[in-house]
Amino acid sequence: MSGARGADDGTVEVRDLVVRYGPATALDQVSLTVGPAEMVALIGPNGAGKSTVVNTLSGVLKPSAGTVAVRGRLAHVPEGRQVFGDLTVEDNLRLGGRRYKLRDTGPVHAILPRLAELRHRRAGTLSGGEQQMVAVGRALMSRPDVLAVDELSLGLAPLVVADLVRHLRELNETRGLAVLLIEQNARLALDLCSRAYVLEAGRIVAEGPSEELAADDRVSAAYLGGVHD
């Protein structure tokens, strides 16, 4: 990665973030941090505002109040396999690096070899799992220090999810990639990440190490409940 970056690159610090859509408040005084090479989960029910957090981090949305500080490069894997369906896989990847004039898809192919095989296919014709892989690959093209992944597992087969998770973990371990993982599947998120935040109705209602949260009765009942194992 680029040599001009500092040691604590790849950190996110969100303080008292407020986001409003017209009269509605989507996020109310949300604070969270992601440290260097840390994997952090953000869990919560539908409509809690999880996607709003990432959309603000990647600059798609503007904060109404509060601060968002990202050190280093942040790349965003949006919810719902948001690929450019009319373009080839290769073009999708290249566009991911466009902002930083990074055109070489080799490093991403090395991480996700399947994308090399699919390079000339139109992204719109791929399976859901493959499209999600394109979205992850496209985000990696910018050689990010932080990856914000919005709903990695949604609508994907368990095997596909396991494969993507393996890639994420590997990137984290070998390259020190920090990850902010937004997940409805709280069990998956808590297993993968060391620390987690629980977002409900636009507010952080719980935070802490994953094991503690998993042991917490309320969190467990709300997000891990119904699974008797």
């Binding site: 965003h76 949006p78 948001q82």
Partner: peptide, 11 residues
């Protein structure tokens, strides 16, 4: 093709 995804990658 996908204006939202375009915004996400900084276009």
């Amino acid at each position: 093709s996908n204006p939202y995804a375009a915004k996400v990658i900084g276009i």
